[in-house]
Design a protein around this nucleic acid. Structure first.
Lengths: 134, 134
DNA sequence: TAATATAAGACCGTATTAGTCGTATTTATG
DNA sequence: CATAAATACGACTAATACGGTCTTATATTA
């Protein structure tokens, strides 16, 4: 209920790990997974998404790994969630993409009033950056 | 992902319906379900929880139904969620009751920093009352 | 060429959620 | 007093989401 998914948690933990160290330093999914006792494959997939989105860089091969590509204060939690979940964090179906498909869209009376709550959540997630999490 | 459950949505819709009308007016689960095209049995169970918690009153029998027991501005969304979900809305397992049982509790580095986000969410859900939703 | 890393996608088991059903109880009314 | 209409409550089922695993391919370096 309203909780971040494990994938997002793992992503944040990994990003924080990178942000704590020298800019540009490379870390493997394996070492991060081991350090925080997190399932390797799952973390790997999360990091792949973040890399595809340009949040981190990836280098393959024997000395490869991931490195933070942005400054921590430029990385909003809202953005990180969007990347990992492949959709924006919303408080209800109707605020997500294609929200008009909600079964009760037309008779729903709380959509408009809850919109304000959604906006406030957006603000909260935008104002929280990786910098705050370090 | 971060979304309110259907049960909470239905509960809010029903509460709003009551708040829109005269204080003390009685509504049946059936008529609300019909009006908003929401599954009757599910709504009924939600209303039962709200009634048990004292948010609405219930009267059985042929002219029975539910009526709002509090002023809309006294009804926080956070409270409504807690009643319906039977647990407080949290951003991560570790902030819920028994959160120390989280697998990675000890190595988790984001718990403390995310605590601020949790607090802000709490504020948001407390500051949003039924009055705002009417 | 071997070792080690990311890339990508299929797959599975389980937990949660949404929704249904059945039955008991209460209460007004003809 | 019988019946109808309402809540009360718990068991059950179905659908979906989530967490996690497995497999195979590709890239890079030594």
């Amino acid at each position: 209920m309203l909780q971040l998914s494990k994938k997002v948690e793992y992503g944040l933990i990994a990003l924080r790990h990178m942000a704590m160290n020298q800019r540009g330093q490379v870390f493997t999914a394996k070492e991060i997974a081991a350090k925080y006792d997190v399932p390797y494959e799952l973390l790997a997939k999360v990091l792949q998404k973040l890399s595809k989105a340009g949040v981190i860089t990836s280098t393959q091969g024997i000395h490869g790994g991931y490195a933070l590509a942005r400054k921590p204060n430029e990385l909003q939690v809202s953005h990180i969630i969007s990347i990992i979940e492949e959709e924006k964090p919303t408080i209800a179906e109707c605020y997500a993409e294609g929200g008009e498909d909600c079964q009760i869209f037309n008779v729903c009376t709380i959509r408009k009033p809850l919109g304000k709550m959604q906006q406030n959540l957006n603000l909260l997630l935008e104002n929280t950056t990786l910098e705050q999490i370090v």
